[in-house]
Design a protein around this nucleic acid. Structure first.
Lengths: 252, 252
DNA sequence: CGCAGGGACTGCTTTAGATTAGCCCAGCAT
DNA sequence: ATGCTGGGCTAATCTAAAGCAGTCCCTGCG
């Protein structure tokens, strides 16, 4: 059962980016048309092939349409810190458009599809549709708030709470673009990804996941996250999704 | 010996905010005049009296003119994570203007002087002087890059490197507004502030500072940071100031 | 068919940093 | 002059997580 309002319009209405911005403001026909144009220059990237590399001067940003990516920084000794994961509807490399060089790298985790957005496109959007500009700034602020929350996790939460918080946040983000619910979600990340994001070793990630599973809180297995006891998990993580600025307490 | 170009203009030319934005672009007379107007609504806040509180809906942002502040989040158990320190020339609470509620608190560390900036003021600046708008977005991106670097520190650096990196970054930031050099800077932070920022305990901060001092790298004492061996400190911290987008390698 | 590689998983040992419990000293209020 | 307070400092003990070393189990492939 699908409602067709006409032409390509319904494609853009169902894009994850549109879904996300709609949480901030209801969008007009005009604004949808501008978004439609932003999605024009589609490109595909294979898993593992960095699309932004740390230290390079970088002009283009991308809107992720399908697949997962992560932004990270590598240290001299080779250790990697994943700063954030990007899911459909998220911007990639928006910050490196403004700073003269990119301070981080971005790697697709699976094959991804993304729309290239040039600095000029952005300026045009900002000039022509101020409400969209505000919506994009909202999304950027939300991303920054997530990084801050992640920082708090690394500084002040132990491994269990950190993991629980991470899995819950991801769930809430996925729910906003229709890819997750209070029951769980599919997730292509390996335990190594979790380790690099949470500042742990893969070995310890494994132990933590086992503990959470045996405690009947969450199961992370075969690319599937299942919330076994949502409320107790929220309590363990002290998860307060206020910073995500989404409607309702969390999920459905 | 002071050069007077006329009227109040030279005041704004010497403001830390102007100095900082000048690292991004040379500003015209017109743009300086707009900055002048932004600095109009001056307010003073006592040390310790939060000017933004976590969870409150918040409209105004501030440009810090004098003094130091910090933004932080508090957990249920009472542990605090300082996200960043703000020094003269920095924006306070810009993100909480865009998100519907503030996700963090901001506390003055000493008595501060700040100019109140309302959402409408910002919109006006964005509409009238696009180059200033770009400069403000640049500053915001730079702040975000600092948070990211901080995140990497918490996730992947040990206590010594974390401390070294922190002290160097602060030095570079202060140098940009004329308050620090390669020799050192004055700094009103207590060891408790450092602990809350670096995800350590005050006890351990003390140990780390002692080690750095005894190794002849930096001295943190009586509100004064002295770089005893700048180059070895940079090496220990793996400090690469690229993310600060400042001219020259670091400092003078 | 056998083997190579990636991902998940486990037990044992070691270490960085937390926790706890204090001391010292300067400033200042009584 | 005495007691209190806040910031800096130290030592002894405890613990979360890392490091190391390895097994198991797939899936793809020459």
């Amino acid at each position: 059962m699908q409602r067709w309002s006409g032409g390509t319009m319904n494609v853009i209405e169902n894009s994850p980016f549109t879904k996300k911005l709609s949480a901030f403001a209801t969008l007009s026909e005009d604004e949808l048309a501008v978004l439609e144009r932003l999605h024009q220059r589609r490109r595909t990237f294979a898993a593992g092939s960095d699309l932004v590399h740390q230290g390079q001067p970088e002009q283009a940003a991308y809107i992720l349409a399908a697949g997962w990516a992560c932004s990270y920084k590598i240290q001299q000794e080779g250790t990697r810190q994943i700063v954030d994961f990007q899911i459909p509807g998220d911007f990639l490399g928006l910050r490196s458009v403004l700073l003269r060089t990119s301070d981080h790298s971005i790697e697709p985790i699976v094959e991804i599809e993304a729309a290239e957005v040039l600095a000029d496109d952005l300026l045009e959007v900002f000039a022509s549709t101020p409400r969209l500009a505000a919506a994009i700034l909202w999304a950027a602020s939300r991303d920054e708030a997530m990084v801050v929350e992640h920082l708090v996790g690394l500084g002040r939460r132990d491994a269990d709470a950190r993991m629980a918080h991470f899995l819950l946040e991801l769930g809430a983000r996925l729910a906003l673009v229709g890819m997750g619910s209070k029951a769980g979600y599919t997730c292509p990340l390996t335990q190594y990804h979790l380790a690099d994001a949470l500042g742990l070793t893969a070995v310890h990630v494994n132990r933590v996941l086992r503990q959470l599973r045996e405690a009947g809180l969450v199961t992370f297995r075969d690319g599937q996250v299942t919330f076994d006891n949502f409320d107790r998990l929220v309590a363990l993580a002290e998860f307060d999704p206020g910073y995500l600025d989404q409607a309702g307490p969390i999920l459905k």
